[in-house]
Simulated assay, not measured.
Amino acid sequence: MAKRRTRFPGGVAIVTDSTASLSPRDAADEGIEVIGLSVIVGADTLIEGVDADAEVIATALREFVPVSTSRPNPQEFAEVYRRLADEGAKEIVSIHLSSRMSGTVDSAIFAARAAAVPVTVVDSRQVGLATGFAAGIAARARGSKVKAAKVAELARTAGENSTVLIYVDTLEYLRRGGRVGSAAALIGSALSVKPLLTIADGLVVPLEKVRTTGKALARMEALAVEAAERCDDYDIGVQHLANAAVAEQLAERLAKRLERESVPVDEMGAVIGAHVGPGTVAVTVTPH
């Protein structure tokens, strides 16, 4: 008889948020609980991963429908922490997008104070796949001899060591959402520049100014290969918003250069998509 899988290996539950870009299947396979952020499209409030997807966001942005995002409130975190404790979790590690981009970490910390079991909140200092990869590393590290503090440390380190490269057609959407950080210096020349961005110290910042889309994507490919080749082992993935053909071509080139069978390609979630806009392509490399 096959050994039954433990609900919480080592007694540790893992929580993350929907910006981590985990599919429901991957989250279930890894035993990760996902809390959805809200996306406000016009007068409608949608929940990422439930009724808000990238297609809805891309269409709204193109049609100039107001789009904004909102963190989960502390009560939502409290309810999840309570349920996990009731289901047998002895400790919880809660891993979330950068506190410099969202108040999600603050909500988690507030709820953690009143939780029935110890909760360690990890600020990944990242967003998107880098946060998801960090949560996955944490989930796989759990075991009888691995304490929650170590699990949290591994997640934090994965976020710190991740390389995230982002190509956007325009900085306009980042400017609207106030998430552009020091990349604001590029806005004045946005019409003549195809920005290549990264995430550093929890913020979106400019990496390089490139004059054409082709050159930006080629440079992003080269930098992703360099980042991967510095690692003994790593997770890698490509994301896009309404730019599937370009993302898939990039993934194929990366797989060939890195001698991997494939590089996964996924459409961005609604929250990230709301801030970067249609046409965006991103690559994430997270060392193990």
Score class of each variant (00 low, 15 high):
D123M: 08
G88H: 06
A222D: 15
A52G: 08
H96T: 09
L203T: 15
I109Q: 03
S70Y: 02
K3M: 11
S23H: 12
E261M: 09
A111M: 01
R125M: 14
P72Y: 00
D235E: 14
G202Q: 09
E172L: 08
R71E: 08
A115V: 01
T157N: 12
A216H: 05
S68F: 10
R25K: 14
V15Y: 00
T69K: 06
G31V: 04
T284V: 15
Q239V: 14
A185L: 15
I14Y: 05
E63Q: 14
S38E: 12
R260S: 03
K194F: 08
S21Y: 12
M101V: 04
I187T: 13
R62K: 15
D29Q: 13
V276M: 08
G277K: 02
G178R: 01
Y173V: 06
E33M: 06
M268W: 02
Q75V: 09
L154F: 07
G128N: 05
V238C: 03
V119G: 01
E267D: 14
A141T: 04
A20L: 09
S124L: 07
A85L: 00
S70M: 09
K209I: 05
T280E: 03
P278L: 08
S192C: 11
A218N: 14
A149Y: 11
A43D: 15
R5S: 12
E76W: 02
R71Y: 07
A139W: 08
T45A: 13
E221Y: 11
E229N: 15
G273V: 03
V122W: 04
F64E: 15
D51P: 12
Q75A: 13
T280A: 15
V65W: 10
G132Q: 06
L207D: 10
A111N: 01
T286H: 10
R25P: 13
A130E: 07
R230T: 10
R4F: 15
A183T: 08
G279L: 05
A85Q: 00
E172T: 12
A27F: 09
A148Y: 02
G49E: 05
T19W: 05
A85E: 00
K147P: 04
V93L: 05
V117Y: 01
S21V: 12
T157R: 14
V164S: 14
V80A: 01
T212R: 10
V12W: 04
